[in-house]
Structures are given as C-alpha cells and as structure tokens.
Nucleic acid binder design. Structure first.
Lengths: 333, 333
DNA sequence: AACTCGACGGCAAGGGGTTGCCAACCTGTT
DNA sequence: AACAGGTTGGCAACCCCTTGCCGTCGAGTT
C-alpha cells in the first residue's frame, strides 16, 4: 500500500536519494545518463513522489481552492468549469468550497484551508473588505465578480453591460425601471445598481430599487409583487434565478410578459433560454472568467516572469435579447 | 508567514512537543489541566497544525475527491452539493474533478490524486470494471450511479423507476416506446435500457433503442429525428438534457408534445420545470445521493465501528409528471 | 606534469508532526 | 514503609523528500 519511496529507487538504481530527487525536480543538476537510469528504475518500481512530503518542505502543493458564495446557483457552474479546466491544464488540483451565502462559513472555510492550498479564487465573496485583505496577506487571492483596490480580480464589465440593458429598455420606450436588488453584502448587487442608476440618469429615465432579495427562484414571488406595486414597466432582476421566479409570479397574476411588463436578468444561465417567455439577460463568457481567475492566481502562486502588481481584469458582457423584453405598455391614464 | 509550529507552542507552554501534539490529537493521553494550558497558549500564538506534516505520517489528510464524468451536466450539481455539504460537516475537504466524459482523463486524474486524497467518490464513472477494482485497492472508493460487485455504491432504483415510467406511458395508451441511449460506456445507460426493456416486456409494449447519443441538448436534434423515424409515440431520453434537445427539435418540426409524441427524461434537473412543455422526468433525491456516497466513503476512510463489507445503497426514485407526457395519439391508419 | 575548474553525486540537516518506549511520579495497598 | 499499578510527560526515531554544502573526478590549460 505505501508505495515505493525515493529510498527504494535509490537503492535499486545504486545512487543516493538526493540524486533520485534531483532526477525528478532538478534535471539539469544530474547527468543525463544517470537520470535516465533513475527514471527507468522509478517507473519500473511504480514510484510516485509523495505530495505531502513535497509540500511539507515547499509549502506548496499544486492545489488551489475556489470558494463560491452559493453553489446552488447554476450561474457558478460555468465559472467552476472554466476554473477547473484551467487548473487541470497546469496540473493543479481544484478544491471546491461552498460558502452557503454565509460570510461566517466562508471565512471559516478559508481559514481551515489556508495552510493546505496555494491560493484562493473567491467567487462573489460576501466577506467585508478587511477580511479579504487579511486573507490576501496569508495566501494569493483572486476575486471573482468583485473588485477591491490592491487585490487581483476578474469581473464582467457591468458599467458597460448595465448601460446596454438600460439603453435596450429605453429604446423600447420604457421610462420607469425597477431593480430587484441582490443580497446586501454582494458587491455585484451594489455595482449593478449603481451602474443601472447612472445609465438611467444619463438617458433620463427613472430607476428605483427594491429589495434586497435572496437570488432564488422562490424569492421571485415577493420580488414580482414588489415590482408591480412600484408601477414600473420594466423589471431588472439581480440575476436569472430571481428573474425566472418573477416570470412565474407574473404568469400567475396574469401579467403578460413582455406586453405589460418587460423582464431582464443577469448571468445568462442555461435555463434562461428555456423558460417561458425566454429571458432577456446580460451574460458574458463565464467560463473565461473562471479560466482567467485561475490563470492570474497561478501566476501569483508560481510566478513565471517578474512579479507584477495585482491585475484587475474586466471582461466584456453581452446582452442576450430574448422574449421577455418588448415595447413599453402604453400607460393607462 | 510560516505560522508558529508545535515547537513554539511547546516552548511557550513549557512542555515537550509530544505533549502539544497529544493535547490536540490524543486528549486522553494528557492531563486535563496541562492540556488546557497548551491549548490556551496555542490559540494565543495562533497556532494551526500543518496539514502536510500531519498527512506525511498518517497518509491521511481529511480530503476526498469526487470525480464527475461531465461537470457540464447540471444533474451533477445536486450530487456535488450533497457531497460537499456532507464532507464539510465532517470537516473533510472535497476536491472536484471533471473527467470530461473521457475514461483516459478520468483515470489519469485519479492516479494523480491517489496519493493525496483519502478516498474517491466516482460519479457515473466511465472506466471499465478492472480499472475500478484496481483503484479500489489503492484507496477507498464509492461509486455513484454505478454498481460493481465488491465495491460500495449509491444508485437510484432504476428498476423500480423505469417500471414507473413504462407504466405511466402504458396507462396513457402508448404501445411503442423508443429509448434514446446514453454514452456507450455508461453503466447508467445500460441499466436504464435493460430496466425499460424488461418493464416494457412485462407490460406487453414494444421498446426499441437508438443511439448512443452524447447526452447534451445539442444532440437532441439527431435523437429526435431518429425517434420519429422509428415511429414511436413515446420517447424516453437518456437524460433531461437530451430530452430538452428533443423537445426543441420536435417543436421545430411542428410535432406537438404531448399530443403527437410524449417525452420523458431522467434526472429532474432544474430546467425540466422551465422548458416548454415542462418535462416529465424520473428524478430522485440527488443531494441525498451525494450525501450518502460521502458518508459511506468516510466510514471506509475513518471507520467508526467495525469494518463492514462494501454497502450498496439503492435510493428510491420519483416520477415527476409534467407537461411532456399525455395520451397516445390515435395511430394514423 | 601540475593545476584549475566545472560537473556530478553524496552526506546530512531539516520541514512539522506523531508515536513507541521509557522514566518519573503519584496513589493507594498491605 | 515497601511496593504494585496507573498516569503523565519527555526523548528520539520516523514519515518522505529537498537542498546547501562538500568531496571527488575527469577534462581542459599552460
């Protein structure tokens, strides 16, 4: 069970353990023919270096953790997938952690893993800035869907994206938009709202915010009712799940979409194309987001070139027009 | 950066390192008051045991890997979620690995991780039996959605479930069912087909199989065309993704569902309730499946009671009736 | 032929905990 | 008062690999 060690290989090859070690980790330091022989013996014995022993000394172990604020949200699947693929491409192992929308759980998990992983990708972290900074001191960190001065991050361009959303709605004649806010400690929620508001202001249309709502389908009922009460002709939901919940509730209340009300979501999850009506939403290359985050993290973990300052990457969004948005209803005077 | 070690704590508390070690890992072996003091000093110094050092000796490191045949499939999200939660409850770390539907990738990844994790949950593994057995020799393994004599496993009861499906279709008057098969090396695909066939036989209705198809929405087109060509009035797709693809194609070809053709999927993914028509599907408590798998694995990794033989758990399915199934069309004579 | 220098291999000291074994001590017994 | 037996703490080896340092040896120089 405990496979052959470096000693077994050394004995079998008639060299010292250090030579075996170097044959693997520092090829230039050992004669080519010796190396060849060692490697041959090693494969013959089925030797595999023990990662723990290696990690003990180096402190690094080719493992990174991705912490996700809520693994239930299908939006993250793409991010996770992109991250996983990128990590694997560099032979890094990805540990997946669910924070259950709880800052406390998130923090505890991070601390628990801090000494066993090389770095963190924090997706939509709900932690306060100080905590993030403190964690970044312990280990390299890349934020995802969140920005913080001094830390690396990868986000979609929501300023641009929200403007597209508002312009789209404005061009359909909407004068009144209501934003269904996401969780209180979500950076993304705050960013979307401020971007929406300034875009609305620039275009001279009214924007109001209600919420916060937990971004689940189940919360769509309350959100929809609130939005109707606010009297807007266009609803922009914090994300697609909430938007889908809104669509359901509206159907229940016999409010026609998009005839009476238009609905827009964020994330462009798989289901957005399946619901009825199909959902107009602000998407982006989410797998790229995941890939990019891991790439930056790996650069911080195992620098290839000179160390740069923390990059803050902004990727473009794309507004996906579907069935849930249409011309504004003529106001019932 | 390299936090305080057991030596620092020992020095500060005025005891030997072994005492500190035991204070943490073997509380009965050290005097209660001494222990208290050691722990107090440890927390004061912010000591955290180094997991690598610990793993070096014990070979175990409170980490398990979950290998998923295709992380893109939303079906796995629930499984992953259940597994992640259960692992966390026992303070185990879950490593997520995507096999990209490739046995080779799957095998390589497993081998790469074999020495750094305590055990494996293999979800819908595409590996041949011999490989699985061989891996099980190296590390504890729990199969998910797959059974193999001698190995632990957790599956949904597809014999029962498929009978429900067939009975449902039979009771709607269908005489002719076509099964759109999943990947060739998928145990689940084989199991579903054989369960469907014997259920059909028992009820005296005809069942044919076409495929295999990669279970993606994009493959639904070809699958649907094949099914129509086969002339069945009811289509049972290998999973919901394929079923949704089928629904799309049918809509495109103006085949009415369920008036002309009924469609059934498997897995009850989130989107099954959103597509048009909504999808009848065979589901089950998938999070429980994940939870259960991890539970069994943990028992094998760190036995609490006497070691038992490999349990093979079968959880019940539930047939979720929605809009995509209805009475059989009167045959056009 | 004496000398320099680079290449290569080996020795041994960690890295941070764990654990078998022994010694010291304390308690209670006869 | 001597002794048996149980507790508790310390010593040191060990887990497996990495790496600084040194010694050796052979090739190249003059």
């Amino acid at each position: 069970m405990p496979g052959p060690t470096i000693y077994d290989v050394a004995a079998a090859a008639g060299v010292a353990t250090s030579t075996v070690s170097r044959a693997f980790s520092n090829p230039t330091r050992v004669n080519a023919t010796t190396r060849e022989r060692v490697l041959a013996v090693a494969t013959e014995l089925g030797y595999r270096p023990n990662p723990h022993a290696r990690a003990l000394l180096s402190g690094r172990n080719h493992t990174i953790a991705m912490v996700v604020s809520d693994i239930t949200n299908p939006h993250y699947f793409e991010l996770i997938r992109g991250a996983e693929m990128r990590a694997r491409a560099s032979e890094y192992t990805l540990v997946l952690v669910n924070a259950e929308e709880s800052p406390r759980v998130e923090y505890e998990q991070i601390q628990r893993l801090a000494s066993s992983v090389d770095g963190f990708v924090l997706a939509a972290s709900r932690l306060p800035d100080e905590n993030l900074r403190q964690i970044a001191v312990q280990r390299p960190v890349v934020l995802m869907s969140r920005e913080l001065a001094g830390l690396s991050s990868v986000v979609l361009d929501h300023v641009q994206g929200c403007r597209q959303v508002v312009e789209h709605l404005a061009s359909l004649g909407h004068q009144d938009v209501v934003y269904l806010a996401g969780p209180r400690n979500s950076w993304m929620a705050a960013t979307r709202w401020s971007a929406l508001r300034s875009a609305a202001e620039a275009l001279g249309i009214r924007a109001t915010r209600i919420g916060p709502f937990t971004p689940r389908v189940s919360q769509g009922g309350a959100a929809a009712d609130g939005a109707l009460h606010a009297g807007a002709t266009a609803i922009v939901a914090h994300n697609d799940l909430l938007a889908i919940g809104v669509l359901r509730r509206l159907a229940q209340r016999a409010v026609r979409v998009p005839d009476d009300v238009s609905v827009v979501g964020f994330d462009n999850i798989f289901a957005a194309d399946l619901c009825t009506p199909t959902l107009t939403t602000l998407g982006g290359a989410h797998a790229d987001l995941g890939r990019s985050a891991v790439e930056i993290l790996l650069e911080a973990v195992a620098p290839v070139r000179t160390k740069e300052s923390a990059p803050q990457v902004v990727l473009p969004t794309e507004l996906v027009l579907r069935g849930s948005t249409g011309p504004a209803a003529r106001p019932a005077v």
